[in-house]
Design a protein around this nucleic acid. Structure first.
Length: 576
DNA sequence: GTTGCGAATGATTCGTGCCG
DNA sequence: CGGCACGAATCATTCGCAAC
């Protein structure tokens, strides 16, 4: 055990409650006392309370706490290893207003408030690190599938993170105006961080905090003990999820261009957001404009960005299920897409941006091919001018690249996939049992309809990295044997355009299916029932193995090949 | 015969450099 | 600076193979 940990043990760290207790207290308090709207805002902003949207699920599970494993483990270990004997019941150390409640009043991004100070006694506080909650901008603008460290660091590299000082600690520094704070790390090196005050009077570490995070390679579940030395100087101890002090933290040196107090090095300024980071840290202010460098395909329509920023907490009800969204961001991955079907599907909206260029090119080529594949042969294949074909032949060698092997990194399975040209989804769903799968299938099989129906159990290739699902032949025989565009009605009665392709005796859904899957967060072993309403219309009934929706994380396999790409490359295309 | 999966190949989009 | 051409990257479709 490191010296810092020993110091922490001796230092009467005022741990009052376990992390999970704190979380659940927060839930309860907010339930009782916060208006819904405020509650949502809290969820949006507060990393420590992101599980709040699980409340219904928790009830479904008999009130079982759903807490971040890593954070919980860190806390449990920390409490056991650091100062279990000094844990004080939260009621005993609180006045009329509990910690969780007050935290709800002023949520704390960047980290879960593991412990804050005992009033009038300590000048220390602890924070559990949740990268996905590391900034208000992150919370408000980035879907949960960016909750992987590399993506988060991309955001940190955009200089967008902040960390709110626990409420009870404000009194130690509330008289301070906006100015620099020094963080003395276990290595003895000092990082300079900007102390800012938001409109609520809350105090946060801002500019420079992301550098500290990046330099110390903070991971989910890491927790930090901040000891206030006075004069806006903190000593920071870094512990990992096993509650052991991180040895590597003792050897961390600041980045080349980080200001070290007493030295005159230029501070790291990172780009990626137009105009640098926002000056105002008001969570209500939209700070979610896309980086200028985004390509055409990367540009979100403005309305989608607004939806992104709105990031409302919601549940999605379907005809076949009551799906509870576990994460605020899943709203983006689900509702937003349901509200905004694929743009080419929106009638009367004019040509989508991505099409305009193509049309221009087609005009330039003087080809008669129309957008939408009007010029198809009898087999449904696209025809192409001979000149372009010859060009393609010339380029064929470059277009057909060897496939990339990559880890599927599924939360459930660790096998390897080879279908990785366009990235793949990583399930964040909890492990599921064979019994649950069977129950789901059983429930789906009970579905009855006067229309022809086909049942498909989602395979990993259908849900995580594929864009084609094959329909049962017993079902496809009832569909006219020709490839065509079909309308898929999702459980929320939104139309989706997919391509039904028929090949010999096989039929399945191709173009558009991937988007449908991503938008509805379908996972392997979920069951879909396709109900044939008309010759070109089907309704999809979704039976999920895990009722609550945990948004998939999208991983771009190209990262390893080409280095880190834009964060938005990892977004499902449906969100772009 | 059915189904899952991977690979080949076609189609489309994007990035960049050149040129007027 | 805008338009264009070209190569690269990405997405979608088709089809073969193997397991059951």
């Amino acid at each position: 055990m490191g010296a810092s940990l020993e110091r922490a043990r001796r230092g009467q760290i005022p741990i009052r409650t376990t992390f999970s207790q704190s979380m659940s207290m927060g839930d309860d308090d907010e339930d009782e006392e916060l208006p819904d709207e405020e509650d949502e805002d809290t969820n949006d902003d507060d990393g420590s309370n992101w599980e709040d949207s699980n409340e219904e699920e928790n009830e479904d599970h008999g009130g079982e706490e759903q807490v971040c494993d890593m954070g919980d483990m860190a806390l449990e270990n920390a409490i056991g290893a650091v100062s279990l004997e000094q844990a004080v019941p939260i009621q005993a150390s609180r006045g009329a207003k509990g910690t969780a409640e007050r935290q709800a009043d002023h949520p704390s991004p960047a980290m879960g408030n593991l412990v804050d100070v005992c009033e009038g006694i300590s000048t220390r506080f602890c924070k559990v690190f949740f990268p996905c909650c590391s900034s208000r901008r992150l919370i408000s603008s980035v879907p949960s599938f960016l909750c992987r460290r590399d993506a988060v660091l991309d955001y940190f590299n955009s200089g967008t993170s902040l960390m709110v000082i626990p409420l009870d600690f404000w009194k130690h520094i509330e008289h301070e105006g906006p100015r620099g704070v020094s963080l003395t790390a276990p290595s003895g090196n000092v990082w300079s961080v900007e102390l800012i005050r938001d409109k609520d009077g809350g105090v946060s570490f801002h500019d420079g905090w992301e550098v500290f995070v990046a330099d110390h390679d903070l991971k989910t579940g890491d927790f930090l003990l901040f000891e206030y030395d006075g004069n806006l100087s903190f000593t920071v101890m870094v512990f990992d999820a096993t509650a052991c002090e991180r040895d590597d933290a003792s050897h961390v040196t600041p980045g080349e261009d980080v200001v070290i107090l007493g030295k005159s090095r230029p501070r790291r300024r990172v780009t990626g957001w137009p105009g640098g980071e926002p000056e105002i840290l008001d969570p209500e202010i939209d700070v979610t404009m896309p980086p200028k460098s985004m390509g055409v395909r990367d540009k979100l329509p403005e309305t989608k960005y607004q939806d992104f920023a709105n990031n409302q907490t919601n549940t999605v009800e379907s005809h076949s299920e009551a799906a509870h969204i576990t994460h605020d961001d899943s709203t983006v991955a689900n509702e937003d897409n349901m509200e905004n079907p694929p743009e080419q599907w929106i009638e009367g909206s004019g040509e989508p941006v991505c099409r305009q260029r193509r049309i221009a090119q087609m005009k330039a080529d003087k080809s008669h091919k129309l957008c939408g594949g009007n010029l198809t042969d009898s087999a449904g294949k696209h025809k192409e001018p001979a000149a372009k074909r010859s060009t393609d032949k010339k380029n064929r060698s470059s277009r057909t690249r060897p496939r990339v092997k990559c880890s599927r990194s599924s939360a459930v399975s660790d096998t390897v996939i080879t279908k990785a040209r366009m990235g793949y989804a990583v399930s964040q769903r909890r492990p599921i049992s064979e019994h649950e799968k069977a129950k789901t299938l059983e429930a789906a099989m009970l579905f009855q309809s006067e229309h022809p129906c086909g049942l498909c159990v989602m395979q990993e290739s259908n849900a995580y990295y594929g864009y084609y699902v094959r329909l049962p032949s017993s079902f496809t025989v009832q569909i006219p044997k020709c490839s065509r565009e079909m309308k898929l009605w999702d459980p929320s009665n939104k139309p989706w355009k997919v391509m039904y392709v028929q090949w010999e005796d096989r039929g399945g859904l191709s173009a558009g299916w991937g988007e449908f899957v991503r938008a509805h967060n379908l996972e392997s072993d979920d069951v879909c029932i396709f109900e044939l309403l008309e010759l070109d219309e089907m309704r999809v009934h979704i039976f999920r193995v895990v009722k609550e929706i945990v948004p998939l994380v999208w991983r771009d396999c190209r990262d390893k090949e080409r280095g880190c790409r834009r964060v938005y490359d990892s977004l499902p295309p449906s969100l772009l």
